Simulated assay, not measured.
Amino acid sequence: MTVQENAPKAVILLSGGLDSSTVLAIAKAQGYACYCLSLDYHQRHNVELLAAQRVAKALGAQAHKTVQLDLSLFGGSALTDNAIAVPEYETQGIPVTYVPARNTIMLSLALAWAEVLQSRDIFIGVNALDYSGYPDCRGEYVSAFQQMANLATKAAVEGQTITVHAPLIDMTKAEIIRAGHALGLNYGLTVSCYQADSRGAACGVCDSCRFRKSGFVQAGLADPTRYRDAEKLI
């Protein structure tokens, strides 16, 4: 699908993982001119940023920017502090892979770019069903941020209401995968693993890998993910 010349602009938060890539495919299918924003926060799995570049290019994003912001200065998460191990088993409660305020930071950056672009739409791939217990992946959080955005920005005060779209919020991982597959998204371009190696090969045992693997099984589709253990057998 080609983008119409007068298509509305949208800022898409793109990590390079399965969910955010699906959101980009959905926004494009809805006719938006997509401006992708990634965050290099010194995450353990920073190979996902290369995946974000691949996905943005494959789906014809109008632009793709990566913001540098070192959240490892604060730590407090297995994704930003190498001294904290990524759990390789099912966890209870909010896991140590939760990055404090990450979605708030990313949405704030997306909001800033949206104002500059004169865009009224921001897309984020949060999901309240197949998620790891993160408090900033809930529908009420998205609604609260949208309300704040419409109080705090010049554009909104002047009548340009901003909408934060979370199209995956009530979908299972299998439903997300089916939706992306129907739109022709190549999930082989994406990286979801919290401890993927420098080539993007996944561990297969972290929360993110388990949700992803289960999603493909339940969707009845082949899993294109490269797993490290499988590569050892080659």
Results as ranks from 00 to 15, higher is better:
I234L: 15
Q160Y: 10
T163F: 13
F211S: 00
L79V: 12
G200L: 06
T163L: 13
N103Y: 04
Q43S: 03
S72G: 08
L69I: 09
R226M: 10
N150Q: 07
I122Y: 02
K232L: 15
E48C: 05
A101Q: 10
L189A: 09
I176S: 05
Q160M: 14
Y41K: 06
V217I: 12
Y131D: 12
P224N: 12
A114I: 06
D223K: 06
Q4D: 14
A78L: 08
K57H: 14
G220V: 06
T190H: 09
G125Q: 03
Q118N: 10
R212F: 01
L109V: 03
S72M: 10
D81P: 05
I105S: 05
F145H: 03
L50D: 11
Q4M: 14
Y141N: 00
N103F: 05
A128H: 02
S21D: 08
A52T: 07
R54V: 12
L233Q: 14
A179H: 09
A51S: 14
M148A: 13
T66S: 12
L109F: 11
I105R: 04
T225I: 05
H64I: 12
M106N: 06
T97D: 05
I169T: 07
G133E: 07
Y134I: 08
I12D: 03
C36N: 11
V11N: 00
A182M: 12
A222E: 15
N150H: 02
L185G: 04
Y227S: 00
T66Q: 14
S198L: 13
L69K: 10
V96G: 09
C36P: 07
S77P: 02
F74C: 09
A85P: 00
H64C: 08
A83Y: 07
K154Y: 14
